[in-house]
Design a protein around this nucleic acid. Structure first.
Lengths: 255, 255
DNA sequence: AATTTTATCTTCGTTTTTGTTCGTTTTGGC
DNA sequence: GCCAAAACGAACAAAAACGAAGATAAAATT
């Protein structure tokens, strides 16, 4: 079955937004709710989307509830950060993307970039970037973690050692007052460190909610990072330190 | 067939716009709707465009469509094979699943098994088995192939070398009259061979449509396989040879 | 000039899609 | 657990798009 104009457009919207609503789509296309429902049912039947009450979502693949909540938290901020970061990535370049909902937002923002080579240990990132035909996706293998679709373990670290890319784009669980990047899982931290080691430029993407939080394992310091993409100014002393370290701070252009 | 002046212009418009509509084209070229329809039908027949109601669109991932078709072909047979195979896999065991729509069917049939450890180079298998909470999923990394969600390359072969599992469950593109398993992609074949090497028992899952077909690269022979799960009796001489080799042939119980 | 070929138009019955209505199910507050 | 509102799916009718077949006209061939 070939998809209609409208259906493939719905799919496109879902890829970008992560979700679509019946009402909104009906308004947008100027058709009845029933027609949209039929479209969504068909897309769900062929496995392209997951149907939910009131709309549909990208195929869940890996997501569970806690993950969904995290993904929707600060969704706008994350999308804005992702756009800014994607704008800093030239076409024809290679990059790492690690685990995290913000890096997934970056993957979505990269759907229009051409000729990228992306190495990732995040199943969701791979699932998103499959849609970008001109992009080579390399999955660093490992043990699949249900909670967030991350691949971790020795296998992952080993695989990453095989590459050297232009940009590392990493997320973090927490960014404390000293400018240290922190995470909860030491396995994941080993992967993140390997990623930083194997890349020429390193970018941190983190929304403001990560700021001032804490977590037990240290990934790196902001002084090891070339630029941090976030959505609100950092505290004054951290800003000062960043300028000493030569770490650029990039905020989304206000709108 | 040579494209008419108008047809190649339609193609040009489609390349730019991504889609074309019958009405609009008819107006633009000053011809009737039927003429445009004929153009679009021809362009679709030669694979240049995808026909949809009201117009046509750029062909979306050619490969992807092929995959969908493959997945739906003999879907019932594959499901039956998968059930039989899954019944032969005890709980608390470890297994490989490689690329292929039949192995994906097996993954679906394993959703109720408990305490499995599954190593796979197939993103779809991983996405399916995520739903089985009691199952450890390990993804063997590699280059992601859009056409079927397979992960291939040296990275994959290396990763598989790290494991030794109880069962290898592999699919194949073709099974010829000599009992040789064949495939089209030599990279994928390397992965399949690595899988066979690293497992204690090896099962082939292949529906009858694979029988008597051919493909350029040899994976192995049925004599290397412990059991083959299929949906129709093999030719007599192959059956005889299998019994010489000690290769069991397992058919779904009729119903 | 006559004939064939090709592309297009016209007509009409068929298929697909969409809108409408209505009974059923799900959801969320109480 | 109960109820109202929202969302849903089934069924049918209307509308749009479709393809087949024959008619027409221009171009190519003889």
């Amino acid at each position: 079955m070939a998809l209609s104009f409208r259906q493939s457009e719905i799919l496109g919207i879902a890829r970008v937004e992560g979700r679509v609503e019946v009402e909104e789509l009906a308004r947008r296309f100027g058709v009845t709710l029933q027609t949209i429902r039929r479209d969504l049912t068909e897309l769900a039947d062929t496995g392209k989307l997951d149907r939910v009450h009131g709309g549909a979502m990208l195929r869940a693949g890996v997501a569970n509830i806690g993950y969904e909540e995290r993904r929707l938290m600060n969704a706008d901020a994350k999308a804005a950060i992702a756009r800014t970061c994607a704008a800093a990535i030239p076409e024809n370049s290679s990059l790492f993307l690690n685990i995290g909902t913000t890096t997934e937002a970056v993957a979505r923002a990269l759907l229009d970039h051409r000729n990228l080579t992306v190495v990732t240990n995040n199943m969701n990132v791979a699932n998103i970037l499959v849609a970008n035909e001109s992009c080579d996706v390399i999955v660093a293998g490992g043990v699949l973690r249900r909670s967030d679709g991350g691949l971790v373990g020795d296998l992952t670290t080993d695989a990453i050692g095989h590459f050297k890319v232009d940009y590392a784009i990493i997320g973090t669980s927490a960014l404390d007052a000293d400018g240290d990047l922190l995470d909860f899982d030491s396995q994941e931290v080993r992967v993140s460190r390997a990623i930083l080691r194997q890349s020429r430029q390193s970018y941190l993407v983190a929304d403001a909610s990560k700021l001032g939080r804490s977590a037990p394992v240290r990934i790196a310091s902001l002084c090891d990072i070339d630029a941090v993409f976030t959505n609100a100014a950092l505290p004054d002393d951290l800003t000062r330190r960043c300028s000493d370290w030569g770490t650029e701070i990039r905020l989304p252009r206000s709108r």
